[in-house]
């Protein structure tokens, strides 16, 4: 790997920082408290599909393992338990094994904010208002163009995951939620399903057939109610099949991921155990599970919802670029 200086990106970089300033201005106006957090932690939330960076702290002949945080969630939720109320972190997060590409960087700027007393759909309202705020401050209008396509911020275009699979991939909800039927359908559609799991094939179809169709009809798209297999730390819906999770897209680019936060510690502990086993199966770095997180949930997490937004991606869209590296003056490349 090497260090690359992209001095000609200085103007873009300034614009990126300006968007960060707008985001913070908006959140502070809305009463969110800014928190700065460590990026090194001795334990982490087990997430089966994320790889982490491992390092160690040394003093005399002792060593302690530390991990760069892939998200600030484990810290912010502890603070929510303490009663901090609506709050946010805007800073670096780290994800190993993500080679740099137009939408990925192993080190990136993440905005994560939580609001108490609400569910995921109220966060959707807040996000739309934030997008309008940024657009108005940059373009003096509540709309802008990305790659010659108009993006109107008047409202969301809504799809449930189930509606989107039916409309864009011809997979009905009966097939979507029945693993056997789903795999059969995928095979019929020409996907190679042998030795792959439901989650893997689902993810492939989602990326191949659904994502490119989101956020391309004049409005940003909000896609919600993911199958429970993708619940992560989200609360399930009363139907028991889907989770209160949404993602939002502009021009096929995923910009944010939101959950109504799961507050049931027992269920969270079970999901952690599953994720831990999955990590082991995939030979991922065996970091300690954050047991303190479960302890905090036991004490009681207030009803809340939160969202994580990739700030480089968001800025890239507002500034009209097709790659996040256009925002960087110093880049680490392969």
């Amino acid at each position: 790997m090497k260090i690359k200086v992209n001095f000609s990106n200085l103007k873009n970089h300034q614009n990126f920082l300006f968007i960060i300033r707008l985001i913070e201005e908006f959140l502070q106006k809305k009463g969110y408290l800014k928190i700065d957090l460590p990026v090194l932690s001795p334990t982490l939330i087990p997430e089966s599909y994320l790889e982490v960076f491992e390092t160690d702290f040394r003093y005399f002949d002792k060593r302690e393992k530390l991990y760069l945080t892939p998200s600030p969630e484990l810290f912010l939720k502890r603070l929510l338990v303490e009663g901090i109320g609506s709050c946010y972190y805007l800073g670096k997060s780290f994800r190993n094994s993500d080679p740099p590409s137009s939408l990925h960087s192993f080190e990136f700027t993440m905005l994560e904010f939580y609001k108490t007393g609400v569910n995921y759909m109220e966060i959707a309202d807040e996000v739309l208002e934030m997008l309008k705020y940024i657009s108005f401050k940059i373009f003096n209008k509540r709309e802008f163009y990305y790659k010659n396509k108009r993006v109107l911020l008047r409202r969301w275009e809504f799809f449930t995951v189930s509606q989107a699979f039916y409309r864009f991939a011809g997979i009905n909800s009966d097939e979507l939620f029945d693993k056997k039927k789903f795999m059969k359908k995928a095979k019929y559609k020409g996907y190679n399903i042998e030795n792959f799991s439901y989650e893997e094939i689902w993810s492939q179809i989602y990326t191949q057939e659904i994502e490119p169709k989101l956020g391309i009809r004049g409005f940003p798209t909000l896609i919600y109610n993911y199958p429970k297999e993708f619940a992560a730390l989200a609360k399930l819906n009363p139907d028991g099949k889907t989770a209160q999770r949404f993602e939002f897209y502009i021009n096929g680019i995923e910009l944010g991921d939101c959950y109504t936060e799961l507050s049931d510690w027992k269920e969270q502990e079970d999901r952690f155990a599953e994720e831990y086993l999955e990590r082991k199966r995939n030979k991922k770095i065996n970091h300690p599970i954050d047991k303190g997180f479960i302890q905090a949930l036991k004490y009681g997490l207030p009803d809340c919802a939160g969202i994580a937004i990739g700030v480089e991606r968001l800025a890239m869209v507002f500034l009209g670029f097709d790659s996040i590296d256009k925002l960087k003056v110093i880049d680490i490349i392969l």
């Binding site: 599909y49 939408l103 893997e200 989602y206 990326t207 995923e254």
Partner: peptide, 14 residues
């Protein structure tokens, strides 16, 4: 060929 980690399943190659 771009590596893509959607965060909802294993890594993909777009």
């Amino acid at each position: 060929a771009e590596f893509y980690a959607p965060g909802k399943g294993a890594a993909l190659m777009k």
